[in-house]
Write a protein that binds this DNA or RNA. Structure first.
Length: 861
RNA sequence: GGGCGAGUGGUGAAAUGGCAGACACGGCGGACUUAAAAUCCGCUGCCGAGAGGCAUGUGGGUUCGAGUCCCACCUCGCCCACCA
């Protein structure tokens, strides 16, 4: 009779059964409310580790909970299958990235099934499949048609020896050397494709309809980085040349004593005076060799050189010297600034070094900064500013901007930190950009009916550092669809963020061949009700996906959907986002900083030491990564304890949004809990228990109360993803039931109800165990198709409550009163207790505070 | 330099402004066992023999009452970082 809980057998049995009966397959069903939940799809790196389980299994618990609450739940899964690691593996092993990727996917699919997640596998998408990336190309063409995709010159890292561009990770060290030939890398302008995301900057800044974590909203806001001010043109003295500057402080314009151009600014070579040319060029060359990171290092001395040229101040007509300095970035604003050393720290430092005049034009309220030892960058009264003198700087900003407009050289302006999205990658393992270059017709988009442009299977993986597509004649050379003449294909591929910008739509109809997604499916399922994933995607992916969604809306792709469901959110792809924390594990390093595999670590008491050398090691909880040798494979745990133990343990570590460290010691607690739950449900009674005779009605009531209170608590906890406290509540109930099981209560209907509700509550968390227990209770398949039970407030209610008695806020005593006791009754009960009488002796009760059902505070003077 | 978080037992943590430490891990003691494992029971914030006192990073404040709200500071973490 007593049969042990054998998770291995149970997991396999039910996973197979679920698959065969298709209970997680979700189809459009207008008679039921829908719930579309997506967790960010993984990159098929090879093996699923517990870090992957962390977003997946609690999201699955959510999917199962919502299913039990009557929703038609769609929970799909797929693979973000293009990307650099596959290509590196290809170069290493001379095997096509496709083979490497698909092998990994096959393995990871199995591992994903092992989690017990309720995925609808019919909807799996793999982004490197032509059936998928065809639609990346389709989107590209649509963007191109609308002017949202364009090509322009942009600086890239270039190795002059290898004659090729390098990816950022191929440039080594602060010396910025090519990883293959150790030549110093230079900046070079190349033709690159961009998506015009800046067109949507203002709308992307509107986050008001999003139920997202506050810090993600802040990141999005900061990334877009809107600033308001003025933009205007300076004329270069004695030439026809002009250059634009952007400033957030037009009110300081009378303090301009020089201008600065970024080293890459195209005007530099045109205005530099012959005597300065050599120095300026040397400086610009030096500056462009440095990475952005180095240039942005604030510790660095602020360097720069004078061009010999002067700009004309738009208000005073004075000569303003023009410098080149690397503290001005080509990538922000206009790549040129007006410098106001009295009121900007950077300009101040530079002016001090260069001996440029510092002119105070804003008077600080407290006189700060007037001594010219420090710049004053706050607001104040404008001084020494011509007609504007005496004006508060706040008003001055608008007034100066308006004046610039009146002069016809500029005006008020808004500037964004957000740049257009560079989508070109000089890589092979990505979506080919569907553009041709014809000698006769120029740039020609591939006609829609010729999509997809398929990646060739027979490419040569020599480590040239360039896309192998460039050397694949069959791919590169083709004919022009316009004139029939010879044409070349674009050999760059798309950023993989393009793939992930719309995959949640593709899940709806993964094999639809007339459009990216079937409108009828979209009409039912969209938008995504819940999107879960890591904070590492808080900016790029989520911003790009929002951008894509808005473009799709503006293309009219959502019109039919919006017409049918005007009540839903249509301006955003993911109205609700949950960001789970990071799961870490311990890594060990020897004194030289080298990471050690667990096999080489031993413990002397609490102290980790090296197995052989006995050297002391440092222990740190870090994000799992192959390089840190701290990746925890779930396999061993799944094998020994079952998937449910791993699921529960991950959810029990702490709040889901917080993450935590994987510490195998703690697993035992969950193992014990599930084993106890197993015995509790499957064994009729404990040996030696006294279960004969009539059940005490009070004990029966206690059990019912515990069950219904737990149900109320667990339901609330599930709603707010508080799985750790839900599990704690289930543990408490299990302990209470354990005690009731030793008594005749076990023979009552209340016990039966308790067991059933307990199993139902466990189902979203531990789906295999719950299914088996449900089955053994003689209940119909499947527990995952049952309705979530409803608690009874009446049964959950307490009959008597304990009132805490405080004196001046400090705990004195507790009194038990009936749950329905009025304040008068409570007061009487409290005032009669010995401790209160004693406390009141010779003192005066100034105030009686009663918090209904909770406590009494006696304020005594 | 800026922004956002977070500081509670030996550990992971819990606590709509109302009994701080639920639930677990670990530890200690006990039962069962020839023994061990497993299981079960009890104890386990600190000081104190006890009564009791002290405790949520530090210092202030608001409140009848603060882990929770406000201000300042310290420490740690993450993100952004010459953004004009």
């Amino acid at each position: 009779m007593a049969e042990r809980y054998d998770p291995k057998e149970i997991d396999e049995k039910w996973q197979k059964q679920w698959e065969e009966s298709g209970i997680y397959q979700a189809d459009e069903d207008p008679s039921r409310p829908k719930y579309y939940v997506v967790t960010m799809y993984p990159y098929p790196s090879g093996d699923l580790h517990v870090g992957h389980w962390y977003p997946i299994t609690p999201t699955d618990a959510r999917a199962r909970f919502m299913r039990m609450r009557g929703f038609n739940v769609l929970f799909p899964m797929g693979f973000d299958a293009f990307g650099l690691p596959a290509e590196n593996a290809a170069i290493r092993n001379n095997v096509h990235p496709k083979i490497w990727t698909y092998n990994n996917i096959r393995r990871m699919e199995k591992q994903l099934r092992m989690t017990g997640a309720s995925f609808d596998w019919r909807r799996e998408i793999i982004t490197c499949d032509p059936e998928y990336y065809r639609w990346n190309q389709w989107f590209f063409l649509k963007f191109y048609e609308q002017g949202l995709a364009y090509r322009k010159f942009a600086p890239v890292d270039w190795c002059p020896t290898c004659n090729t561009t390098l990816a950022r990770e191929q440039v080594l060290g602060t010396e910025r050397l090519c990883e293959r030939c150790n030549t110093a890398v230079i900046r070079k302008d190349l033709n690159q494709w961009y998506f015009r995301i800046t067109d949507y900057a203002e709308e992307l800044l509107d986050l008001s309809s999003l139920d997202w974590p506050e810090h993600v909203l802040t990141l999005q806001r900061n990334w877009i980085g809107k600033s308001e001010g003025a933009q205007f043109a300076f004329s270069v003295k004695d030439t026809e040349e002009k250059f634009e500057v952007f400033t957030t402080r037009p009110d300081t314009i009378f303090g301009v004593t020089f201008c600065v151009l970024a080293p890459e600014h195209p005007l530099v070579e045109r205005i530099v005076t012959p005597d300065r040319k050599a120095e300026v060029e040397a400086y610009a060359f030096q500056a462009t060799r440095q990475s952005e990171i180095e240039r942005l290092n604030t510790e660095k001395e602020r360097t720069g050189v004078f061009t010999g040229a002067y700009a004309v101040h738009p208000f005073t007509g004075e000569d303003v010297p023009i410098y080149v300095a690397d503290y001005v970035l080509m990538g922000y604003g206009t790549g040129a600034i007006m410098a106001v050393p009295a009121h900007d720290e950077r300009d101040f430092d530079f002016a001090k070094r260069q001996g440029v005049e510092i002119r105070v034009v804003i008077e600080a309220p407290d006189g700060e900064g007037q001594a010219l030892t420090t710049p004053y960058s706050g607001e104040g009264k404008m001084v020494n500013s011509g007609a504007f003198t005496g004006m508060p700087s706040r008003e001055g900003k608008a007034a100066v901007a308006a004046d610039l407009k009146a002069k016809g050289i500029g005006g008020p302006a808004v500037n964004y930190r957000l740049r257009d999205w560079l989508v070109s990658r000089q890589r092979m393992w990505g979506t080919p950009i569907p553009i041709l270059y014809c000698d006769q017709c120029g740039m020609v988009p591939v006609p829609e009916d010729q999509l997809p442009v398929v990646l060739p299977d027979d490419v040569d993986f020599k480590p040239t550092g360039e896309s192998p597509l460039r050397y694949h004649d069959g791919f590169r050379h083709t004919t022009c669809p316009k004139c029939g003449g010879p044409a070349e294909r674009e050999t760059d591929t798309m950023d993989t963020f393009v793939d992930s910008s719309w995959y949640t739509y593709r899940y709806l109809s993964p094999h639809h061949d007339a459009a990216p997604f079937d409108v009828l499916a979209g009409e039912y399922w969209l938008p995504v009700n819940l999107y879960t994933g890591g904070a590492e995607h808080a900016v790029m992916h989520l911003l790009y996906a929002r951008f894509f969604h808005k473009v799709m809306r503006d293309m009219g792709m959502l019109n039919a959907l919006m017409a049918v469901h005007p009540d839903r959110v249509w301006d955003e792809p993911f109205p609700t986002l949950f960001n789970q924390g990071t799961i870490t594990s311990f890594s060990y390093r020897d004194p030289s900083g080298r990471y050690l595999p667990y096999a080489e670590v031993e413990f002397e008491g609490e102290k980790p030491v090296h197995r052989d050398t006995r050297e002391p090691l440092t222990e740190a909880a870090e994000k799992m990564s192959k390089s840190k040798l701290n990746v925890v494979a779930p396999d061993e745990y799944v094998d020994r304890y079952g998937a449910d133990v791993v699921r529960l343990f991950l959810m029990f570590i702490g709040p889901w949004e917080q993450g935590g460290a994987w510490n195998p010691r703690g697993v035992e607690g969950i193992v014990r809990f599930l084993n106890r739950a197993w015995w509790l449900v499957t064994e009729p009674s404990e040996p030696g228990a006294n279960t004969t005779g009539e059940a005490d009605p009070a004990r029966v009531r206690d059990l019912q109360r515990a069950v219904h209170q737990t149900l109320r608590k667990v339901t609330g906890d599930f709603e707010r993803f508080s799985y750790n406290t839900a599990i704690a509540a289930l543990m408490e109930l299990s302990n209470a039931m354990q005690r009731a099981k030793q008594t005749p209560v076990v023979n009552t209907p209340a016990w039966q109800e308790a067991v059933e509700i307990f199993v139902l509550m466990l189902a979203p968390l531990a789906p295999h165990l719950a299914e088996e227990m449900w089955h053994r209770l003689g209940q119909p398949y499947s527990v995952h198709q049952q309705s979530w039970p409803q608690w009874s407030e009446e049964l959950a209610a307490e009959e008597s409550i304990e009132i805490v008695v405080q004196v001046n806020g400090k705990l004195l005593d507790r009194v038990r009163v009936p749950a329905y006791a009025t304040e008068a009754v409570v007061r009487e009960a409290v005032m009669e207790t010995e401790k209160v009488k004693k406390a009141l002796e010779g003192r005066q009760l100034r105030k009686f505070i009663y918090v209904p059902g909770r406590l009494v505070n006696l304020v005594i003077g």
